[in-house]
Design a protein around this nucleic acid. Structure first.
Lengths: 330, 330
DNA sequence: TGTGCACATGAGAACGATTACACACGCTGG
DNA sequence: CCAGCGTGTGTAATCGTTCTCATGTGCACA
């Protein structure tokens, strides 16, 4: 920058003014400065700038699992919305791991991101204190944690899960096995709770041995499916509360030679483009991932602007495709 | 930091020394400083540190498409390897878009990343000059660009594609339709070239009307498939040169009521966990994504360390599963 | 012609860390 | 008893920006 100033015969202050589009500089000096910048191939140092202005124009996004397409889509949406507003996104992958998440939150804070979007790996909220201490705007995405006082963006599955329960009961399923998410995540608990409540509401209690908790990943889905179909009274249908566990369950059922829905029905939480391609197409509860990502980014922007954005609750919806033996009617 | 120094009754220099694990400070001062840090909840400002040390301990990773699971897996591997070496990864998603890619490269350079990993969206290499000008270590991943003098990490599909060609011919396929990647990407060109050469080698020239170029995304795969099966002499098999285009092709075939492999065979480049679940399971060419990501990160580390890492070529391999009507012996 | 007023520009102090250098202190050895 | 040395600390310059003032110039007005 000093070089540019020298080269254009002005001071660094003027170069800075030109760079930041201040009103002051004369058209003539402005063009001289621009010429010098261009000639020297000068690029401003964002670090120094941020150090001075205390603004990095950057969001930190911590997601639970990058290879989970649900989160990948969210990440993409967040990034698009952020970019549209001149923000950059630093993506951190917690890999469903508490400690890694905490490490990343710390790193992002140290780098002075302007705001933080987190899909918490678990309920553990110790990291929240650090964020609050750093006075960094925070928005929770998909999952909540206890005791965090910040906007939350999530999809509400209560209605869809109730509808699914009705559909399963109508189809004649009485023994339903649930491959639930971890009890240490809000989504893990809620989905199970809503579904179980819906069943109970219609007089069909979910027996404890028919619930197996996984970790939102593929292998756990396979293990849970194996465990469930091995029960003395085999469930007539399985519900996997996440697309990766659903994938694992499918693999396991296939491996065991069980036919869907003939031997056992299957419904999965989260839609994926390949679910309709299976035989039979899989019945799912679809979440509005793109809208979730967008909404979260917008909430964060609002927070940064000093507003108090309300929580966002979008609706997940049931898409019945026949993998539970039901008739396909959307 | 000044506060910490004051609180511990030392100078900022000493605080810094404690922070950076210098040999100098006495155990006694060290603990006093640590106590003060802890008490004040002090967190060092990474920006200031980087400004001073000209090292950010950060890699920039520009990938072509975040929702493409192939790249998501690579990203995860890069991030893991980087983290293992104390580096952070800033992930940028080019969305298969040249301009967006250039913008991101520039942003990352401005933020003074210590190194750059790029999966180039196209052959356009203008952005490379900026990287070179900034004297930032660069490694290309998956795809190459013309005239970039830097280490490249990629999977070589020549062998697998040849094997696939043999397999298809053996199975009796004579009219083979190719859903190729964009001609402006090295992988798009190479895969087509290798496959076409392999066919030719066995006396079966690939006719131009049997090649349709897509853009490595789902919709283009569907369009290409539609176009190919509408040819007067319908191909007996389709080869999609990327998993997303393969997905699109599958959807289109399904929509048209064409049965795989009865009406038309299908093979896809890139494996995905759900391919084996389809009926029939899809024949694929699998790439070692995790190893690619790892290797790329290691190459970059080497480059930063001043070494001259050699290009890495890993092998893709054919996994025959029956979707081309062949026997499964893959 | 001198006073006052815009207005563009420059000088220099931050921002928060690292680090070369100088200093003070307590030892040892002649 | 003092030169000399090693050791632990502090002082201050520095990284590349931004931004507050102060300064200088030109112009209108009395």
């Amino acid at each position: 920058m000093k070089d540019v100033a020298l080269h254009a015969g002005v001071s660094t202050a003027t170069v800075s003014r030109v760079l930041n589009g201040h009103a002051a500089p004369t058209p003539e000096t402005r063009s001289r400065v621009l010429a010098a910048i261009d000639e020297l191939g000068y690029r401003p140092n964002a670090l120094a700038r941020s150090l001075r202005t205390t603004s990095t124009k950057t969001f930190g996004l911590v997601i639970s699992d990058l290879v989970n397409p649900f989160f990948a889509e969210i990440a993409r949406a967040v990034e698009q919305e952020a970019r549209a507003h001149g923000y950059c996104v630093v993506l951190a992958n917690a890999d469903e791991n508490d400690e890694q998440q905490a490490t990343y939150v710390r790193t992002l804070l140290d780098r002075r991101v302007d705001g933080l979007l987190v899909c918490p790996a678990t309920d553990d909220a110790t990291w929240v204190e650090e964020v609050v201490a750093g006075d960094v705007p925070l928005v929770l995405l998909d999952r909540t944690v206890t005791g965090a006082d910040c906007p939350v963006v999530r999809a509400d599955g209560a209605e869809a899960l109730t509808e699914l329960a009705v559909r399963l009961i109508d189809t004649g399923h009485r023994r339903i096995g649930v491959i639930a998410g971890p009890a240490v995540t809000s989504t893990g608990r809620e989905r199970l709770e809503y579904f179980s409540a819906a069943l109970a509401q219609f007089g069909h209690d979910l027996r404890p041995e028919y619930v197996v908790h996984g970790d939102f990943r593929r292998d756990s889905g396979a293990r849970a499916a194996a465990e469930l179909v091995a029960l003395p009274e085999r469930p007539t249908a399985l519900v996997a509360m996440d697309n990766l566990m659903g994938l694992g369950a499918l693999e396991e059922l296939r491996r065991l030679g069980l036919v869907v829905p003939g031997d056992v029905g299957l419904a999965v939480y989260d839609d994926q483009p390949w679910f309709p391609l299976l035989d039979p197409p899989i019945t799912v509860i679809a979440q509005p991932t793109v809208e979730m990502g967008r909404a979260a980014a917008r909430s964060l922007l609002a927070l940064i602007a000093g507003e108090q954005p309300a929580d966002v609750r979008l609706n997940a919806k049931l898409i019945a495709r026949g993998s539970c033996g039901e008739t396909n009617r959307g």
